[in-house]
């Protein structure tokens, strides 16, 4: 018990330190937030022009607005991109430091990302609140009445979606031990997630084949499932939960296996 308390104390201190360090990039973070939100606002313009010319639109503009608002929210709370720079550290032989300390490279990635994510959430929240208020003021925003269960499950799904995103990023990072283009895989990750996780357009508007593909694989938990939970009050089924936890277990196992194999293969000149 004492050991657990000690470990928690250590982790909270590291996270606090990383959080303070991340604060020096606050302007950059604000720019990222604006760049994340901007394309969705443009999408609303596109949809407005599409729906205004459609004789019998299958979806209303407020429904689409809520959908894209939820995409921004889920994205802000769960997406992580450390695979864009971490592979370089492995490839350039810069992780020696972590191999001789009781603080592993994976721990460093986890704690650093949690601190960065906490800061990002703190910074994006006022923007989301303001955007929600403006959209509500324009009559484009109406969140359906949700029960406590829905809210709790939504929060839980956000947390699990973050872990899933994190595991995918870590998996890509681990491939840097063997593969020079690990950073490029980050682009493929974004592409595959954009296509199969339900971020493009509301699920009901997807072609049937894409609905089937989205439903059949775990990337749906990144966007489609949390968004449908809010918009359609569709709680995940037992099968969904087992798919999600099975995927996470598989990813975590694979990551540790790759890490074990990777550090055996790892070499650096001087560090």
């Amino acid at each position: 018990m004492n050991r657990i308390a000690q470990q928690s104390n250590f982790y909270s201190k590291v996270i606090r330190f990383k959080f303070i360090k991340a604060l020096q990039w606050r302007t950059e973070m604000i720019l990222w937030i604006l760049l994340d939100i901007f394309p969705f606002i443009i999408l609303l313009f596109i949809w407005q022009s599409v729906l205004s010319l459609s004789a019998s639109p299958s979806i209303s503009l407020p429904e689409l607005t809520v959908f894209y608002y939820l995409v921004i929210l889920v994205q802000g709370f769960t997406v992580t991109h450390f695979e864009e720079y971490r592979p370089e550290e492995i490839r350039m032989g810069k992780i020696d430091f972590f191999l001789i300390k009781p603080y592993s490279f994976i721990q460093e990635i986890i704690l650093n990302d949690i601190a960065g994510k906490l800061l990002y959430i703190l910074m994006i929240s006022p923007f989301l609140a303001l955007l929600g208020y403006i959209l509500w003021h324009l009559g484009l925003f109406a969140i359906p009445a949700l029960t406590t269960i829905h809210v709790l499950v939504f929060v839980c799904l956000l947390l699990l979606a973050y872990i899933l995103q994190f595991c995918l990023s870590l998996l890509i990072t681990m491939t840097a031990f063997w593969f020079e283009e690990a950073q490029g895989l980050s682009n493929l990750k974004i592409l595959v997630i954009s296509l199969f996780s339900g971020t493009l357009i509301p699920f009901a508007l997807l072609p049937e084949w894409l609905q089937k593909v989205t439903n059949a694989q775990p990337l749906k938990f990144l966007f489609a499932v949390p968004i449908r939970l809010i918009q359609e009050q569709a709680l995940p089924t037992a099968q969904d939960w087992s798919m999600l936890f099975g995927t996470l277990a598989f990813l975590i196992g694979t990551i540790f296996l790759l890490w074990q194999r990777g550090i055996q293969k790892y070499s650096s000149a001087g560090g």
């Binding site: 022009s49 599409v50 459609s54 592409l191 493009l200 357009i201 508007l205």
Partner: peptide
């Protein structure tokens, strides 16, 4: 792949309506 994705995205929008801003 990104280019294909972009075309695909707009093809999805065009499924809802035949035109975008005319």
């Amino acid at each position: 792949l990104w280019t294909g994705f972009n075309f695909f995205f707009f093809s999805l929008i065009l499924r809802v309506s035949d035109t975008v801003a005319g």
